[in-house]
Amino acid sequence: MKPAPVAYRRPESLDEALADLAELGDRARPLAGGQSLVPLLALRLAQPEVLVGLERVAELRGADLDGDRLEIRAMTREAELERSAALPPLLGAALGHVGHFQIRSRGTVGGSLAHMDPAAEWPALALLLDATLTVASARRGRRRLPAASFILGPLTTALEPDELLEAVTMARPDGRFGFAEVERRSGDFALVGAGCHRGRVVVFAAGPRPQRLPGVEAFLRDGGAPGPELQRRAHAEIEARDDLHASAAYRRQVGARLVDQVVAAAS
């Protein structure tokens, strides 16, 4: 479990980082907090020629949590957000499920979004809160993508090899919400999770990517309430996969029950 030889660059600015990626393309991997990439390197499942460490890129640090629109820059560590008094309760509730405090001390918001583990909280939050992701490259400048276009599948996003995720922005999530997940041990990736806020309903860790449940949302718009009918609709709508820890059938059943819970909590 030792990485293969790899070169390491440590750009001092966003322009320098983007220039590195433009030069190296898919021979390079940006390194954010390292909580997913470093284990993959150690297992030699990822063998980039060059790591571009983003540690010193000041433009990628910090979050603005005070206004009506939140901006979290990509290299903001989860623990920094947790310590902020302005953090909306919904984000706080979700962050409590992200690994252990050691992981949150290193892990970054942008790293989690760009890695796109289907069971991770940040992609689910981005979808739930209709976040906008700002993506930059040296050649094409900036583009802004809604979360639904950014998230493509397991470990797959709309990011091109020469692009960096710069920031994620979203309207401040106020008011009632629900966020719940089932994990085998505290801090594990969820077996299945769900969130509800302002009529939007998202299930994650069940299928290949976090999933909005438009049928359930429509049911709620039409005056539907938590209960067996809502669970039945959620059950029918959830895309679920089998893995070592749980079957698709488990994920549909428990996911539907969590949807019921989070809808109840949010209404």
Binding site: V182, R184, A246, S247, A249, Y250, Q253, V254
Partner: peptide, 11 residues
């Protein structure tokens, strides 16, 4: 006796 096995036994 994992969540999956308990779920399957109940089902």
């Amino acid at each position: 006796y994992s969540p999956q096995r308990i779920f399957a036994a109940v089902e």
